[in-house]
Amino acid sequence: MIRNLKIISLLLVVLLVGCGELSKTKTIKIAHGLDVNHSVHKAMVELGKDLEKRSGGKMKLQIYPSQQLGSERECLELLQIGSLDMTKVSVGVMENFAPKMKVFGIPFLFRDRQHSFNVLDSHVGKEILDDGEQYWLKGLAYYDAGSRSFYTKDKPINTPEDLKGLKVRVMESVTAMDMVKALGGSATPISWGELYTSLQQGVVDGAENNPPSFYLSRHYEVCKYYSLDEHTVLPDVLVIGTETWNKLTEQEQNWLQASVDKSVIYQRELWADAEAEALREVEKAGVTIIRPDKALFQSKVKSIYEGYKDNPVINNLMHQIIETK
C-alpha cells in the first residue's frame, strides 16, 4: 500500500513538472548591432508585442541591441551553434554565409525603391532568402535599409575620380570591396562598432551607408560630406538559426513568421520617415549633401556585371531582378 502511494506520488510530481514545462513561456533571443532609436529596433519591439499577443503569452522576444552580443558576423556564428536564436544582419554580411545574396551587392541593380520591394516580395526574393538554410541560417524576412551612399571627412565626392586615393570603409563583403575598387577607391573592411574611432583617427577617409545609419551613428560629426549616389540597395535580413527553428512546433513557427511579416510592413513605414529625418538633421549639423550624376558612377561599375557572366547562379538572379516589374 505504502509502495503504491509512493508510486502515485512520483507520478503526480512528474505530471506537475510536465505541466509546468508546457506552461512555460518560450523566449526567443534576438540580437542586432543598431541603436535603440533605429527603425529596425523599433520594428523588433513591435514584433515582440505582436508575437506575445498572437501566441497568447506562450512566446516572447528578448532583444539585445547595439552589438551587446557581438558584431553581425559573430551573431550569425552564434546562431549556427545554437547560442543565439535570431539576429538582424545586412545582406552584405550574410553573403558570406548565403552566396546568392551576393547579387544584392551589384551596384545600381534596382531602378528605384518600389522595384526593390517588388523583388524582395517576389519568388526571386524568397529564393535568395532561403539560401542560408544549408548553413544553418534560415532567413525569415527582409527589412528595408534604403540605399547606400558615400560620406567623407575632408573631400566631397562629386564624381568617381574623387574617390581615387581614398580609404573607404566597407562591410566584410567581396562585392562591396569590388565596387569601391571599380570606382577608384581603396576598400577597407572595418566592423561597424569600430568605425567612428577609425574615422576620427584617419584609419579611413570615409565610408558608405544609408542616411539613418549615418545619422544615428553620429558619423556626421566627423564626416561633413554626404554624396547621394545611392550605389547599392542592401536590405537587412531577419535570420533565425535552424537549430532554434526546428525546436519550434509548427504552430509556434507560424506565430513567429506571421509576427515577422507584420513587422516588415511597420518597419518600411518607419524607415521612410527615418530617412527623411536623417537627411534634415545631418544638414542642420553642417553636412554638405551632394546629389551627383549617378550615370558617371554607373559607367564605372560595368566590369562588375561582366565579372558575373561566368557565375550562372548570380548571373541568372541578376537578370531576374532586372526583369522584375
Rank of each mutant, 00 (worst) to 15 (best):
K6R: 14
A207E: 07
L12A: 13
P235G: 08
G307H: 12
R280V: 09
Q114E: 15
R148V: 05
I321M: 03
V222Q: 08
E77N: 15
Q67M: 12
N210Y: 06
G206N: 00
L234N: 13
G125E: 04
S55V: 00
K262T: 10
M101V: 07
S217C: 12
K24V: 01
D131V: 11
G70V: 08
L22C: 13
A187H: 06
S227V: 06
I265Q: 05
E161Y: 12
E252H: 02
V204Y: 02
V204K: 01
Y225F: 15
I157M: 02
G57W: 00
D130F: 09
L51V: 07
V237Q: 05
S213M: 14
E323I: 05
G185Q: 00
T25Q: 12
R291Q: 06
V93I: 15
L140F: 03
G193Y: 05
T175Y: 04
L317C: 08
K126M: 11
E230A: 10
S303A: 15
K302Y: 00
W271K: 08
D144C: 07
Y196C: 05
Y135H: 12
L279C: 07
L12W: 10
S217I: 09
K42M: 10
L10H: 01
E277W: 01
R218P: 13
E77T: 14
H319E: 09
M1E: 12
T175R: 04
G193M: 09
F214L: 04
V260I: 14
A187W: 02
L79F: 06
F104Q: 09
I157P: 02
T324H: 04
L195E: 12
E283N: 11
P156M: 03
N37V: 07
A207H: 03
I290K: 04
Y220N: 02
M179T: 15
T197D: 10
Y225H: 15
L228N: 13
M59Y: 08
L10M: 08
I106P: 04
Y142W: 08
L10P: 00
T288M: 05
Q320G: 13
W271E: 07
E252D: 11
V40P: 00
D162G: 06
L238V: 14
K100A: 11
L163I: 11
G82T: 08
D85P: 00
D293F: 03
R169I: 01
N254F: 10
P189M: 00
L270F: 10
D130L: 10
G206L: 01
P211E: 00
R111V: 10
L199F: 03
E194W: 07
K181N: 12
E252Y: 04
K224P: 07
E74C: 08
Y220G: 04
R280S: 14
Y142F: 15
Y143C: 02
Q134V: 13
Y308F: 15
Y64G: 00
L317P: 08
Y64L: 01
K58M: 05
A207N: 14
M171N: 12
S186W: 10
K102L: 05
M179I: 04
E52W: 02
H123R: 06
T27Q: 10
S39Q: 15
E72S: 10
